[in-house]
Amino acid sequence: MRFLFAQDSPYSQEGKRLSSYLSYIIPTISFDGSKTSKHQHDNTPIRSASGGYNYEDFEYQDVPSDNYVDCNPMCNSMDLSKDDNINEDHTSRRSSSSSDVFEEAKEQQTPHASKKSRLNLTDESTFISPELYEFLETCLPNIVKGRQWVLLYSTLKHGISLRTLIRKSAELSCPGLLIVGDMQGAVFGGLLDCPLKPTAKRKYQGTNQTFVFTTVYGQPRLFLPTGLNRYYYMCLTDILALGGGGNFALCLEEDLLTGTSGPSDTFGNLCLAHSPEFQLKNVELWGFSHASTFQS
């Protein structure tokens, strides 16, 4: 490396020490004034008009005045405490903000109303859970879908009588939903055309919008008409049955205490209850609010 000052300069010993120190900190300069050092600095020495460098200027420009710190103890303590307060305030705000965001997200994830409160029923049901309600709502014909469900008949409320069930169905001029259950916990039933009209002989009625369903296999399961026959349902004074061809898909006796179920050609269903013969826990018939005055 070559330094700006030559060793044979007529400076004093002190001057030599100073020149050696300055030579160490000043980048190596070639004779034509160009820099040759690999370590460049942002603040370059100011070159004088004579072609040399004014090192008095260089000594003061290398450190910006913004980097100086006021060493007054009182000022420092005040500034530090102020900074601490600011930091604490910012931390508190961040914590509060994070908490608010968390609570807001939690509120969005948690429904304001339970599923049970969203059931559009006029009365409580022995069988209808929120999941079953949502399932059956999607299965209903468009003419009644989305309407309020009205309990027309229940053995717990109106007594054990098929005749009473038939009479209460007269309040409907649209499909009605029959829901029953066995003592082992299965819930099943079907959609019927109402009002129910008992016939003197065994004669099938209904349309292809009739269906049967069950929960005995876990999730609710729907069985639609297969088209093999038109044995949709049969209504007598002593029997109410859905499906035919091989077996009734569902058959209720006059006393509404017992029933039977088996595979039918009409719906292609399996047994809807836990066993082909069963005792009934309850029988409900539901109508829909836009189709009747539903007088008690």
Rank of each mutant, 00 (worst) to 15 (best):
A241P: 00
T215V: 08
A200H: 12
G176F: 04
D66M: 09
H290A: 14
F223L: 10
M234P: 05
P263Y: 00
T28L: 08
S154F: 03
S117A: 15
Y24M: 11
G259A: 01
G146F: 04
Q184K: 13
L270H: 04
C194P: 03
S95L: 12
Q209P: 01
L250R: 02
G51K: 05
A200V: 14
L224S: 09
E88K: 10
F278Y: 01
Q7G: 10
H112V: 12
E131P: 01
R147W: 07
E253K: 13
Y55F: 15
Y153D: 07
K115W: 05
V101T: 09
K168M: 15
M234C: 15
R94C: 06
Q205M: 11
K201R: 14
G227S: 10
M78E: 12
S23Y: 03
S77F: 09
S81V: 11
D62E: 06
T126N: 06
A273S: 15
D265F: 08
N67H: 13
P220W: 00
G189A: 07
D265K: 11
S65M: 08
N120L: 14
D84R: 13
R167H: 12
N67R: 11
D42S: 11
K82R: 10
G218L: 04
G15E: 15
L151G: 03
D255E: 02
N247E: 04
W286G: 10
T122I: 05
Q7D: 14
T164V: 14
T138E: 08
S37P: 01
L236K: 13
S12V: 02
F294K: 07
E59W: 10
P27S: 15
Y204A: 05
S275N: 05
P45Y: 06
S275F: 06
G243Q: 02
C139D: 03
L22I: 10
T122K: 02
S117P: 02
E107R: 14
S98R: 15
K203A: 09
K197T: 15
S99I: 03
P220A: 01
Q205I: 04
G287F: 02
T214G: 00
D57C: 09
L152G: 12
L156Y: 07
A241D: 04
H290D: 15
S12F: 06
E59C: 13
D238N: 12
T110E: 10
G262V: 00
S9P: 00
E253A: 07
T126K: 10
T28R: 09
E254Q: 13
F211T: 06
L177S: 10
M234G: 01
R202C: 08
G51D: 09
N43M: 12
K157R: 15
Q108N: 12
W286S: 08
Y11L: 15
N247I: 01
L228G: 01
Y53R: 03
D255W: 00
S30Y: 00
T210M: 07
R167L: 11
L250E: 03
G15F: 11
T44C: 09
L22C: 04
P141M: 14
A105D: 13
Y204S: 11
E56K: 10
L191M: 07
L151D: 01
F211K: 05
S23M: 04
L156P: 00
Y68S: 08
T36H: 05
Q7A: 15
V187A: 06
E277G: 00
Y68G: 09
D8A: 06
